[in-house]
């Protein structure tokens, strides 16, 4: 057994774990954070994606001991403290970007990572950013749409530049743009 300390979605944990324990199983089975699913055995599907120290990773292919001292954010840590959804969560809901929902946590974590590096991606860049995430249901069209919509909303909130947001007619002020 190896002792690890990790911060997950803002809470600090200390645990004894077997070295072979995968990070995704630590999250699901030890911490009860079952929002992060396992979809494959080959590191291909991306369903298990979480953020480790600021970068998206496939948590089925990271050992819990490798996350020792690190900070993990899962899909369950995205909503704000008062329960308000992350713009990506809202956009996936509004744009019908999911059917069964199994790929959704990973899609959102990958998209969040993409938008951090590239806040204004083209549809092609969204597809490349989500290259490591497989969806069996939707055909991806609405997923791409949702990511673009969330990107536009985040840009509107972060840097309100008058005249720079062609797709929104009304002038945007912080907090006023949340869709109903």
């Amino acid at each position: 057994m190896t002792r690890i300390s990790v911060k997950v979605d803002g809470t600090a944990y200390e645990d004894e774990v077997e070295p072979r324990l995968l990070l995704v199983h630590y999250l699901r089975d030890r911490l009860g954070l079952t929002g992060t699913p396992v979809g494959c055995d080959t590191t291909n599907c991306g369903a298990c994606m979480v953020d480790l120290d600021g970068k998206s990773v496939k948590s089925c292919s990271v050992l819990a001991v490798q996350a020792d001292g690190g900070e993990v954010t899962t899909i369950q840590g995205l909503a704000s403290a008062d329960g308000e959804w992350h713009p990506l969560q809202r956009a996936f809901h509004e744009q019908h970007a999911l059917q069964c929902g199994f790929c959704t946590p990973g899609m959102i974590m990958a998209a969040r990572d993409l938008l951090r590096e590239n806040p204004d991606p083209t549809p092609e860049e969204v597809r490349e950013g989500l290259e490591g995430n497989l969806c069996r249901c939707t055909g991806y069209m609405n997923i791409v749409r949702a990511v673009l919509a969330a990107a536009a909303e985040e840009r509107r909130h972060q840097a309100p530049e008058p005249g720079a947001v062609a797709e929104h007619a009304e002038p945007s002020t912080a907090g006023s743009g949340a869709p109903v």
Binding site: D41, T42, S61
Partner: peptide, 26 residues
């Protein structure tokens, strides 16, 4: 040796290798 684990961990998950010790150089 364990570096990023992106080849080694899939191999271990599929039980294609059985090392007794992983030396994490990360």
């Amino acid at each position: 040796v364990l570096a990023g684990g992106q080849s080694l961990l899939p191999i271990l998950r599929m039980r294609l290798a059985f090392p007794e010790l992983l030396v994490d150089v990360g």
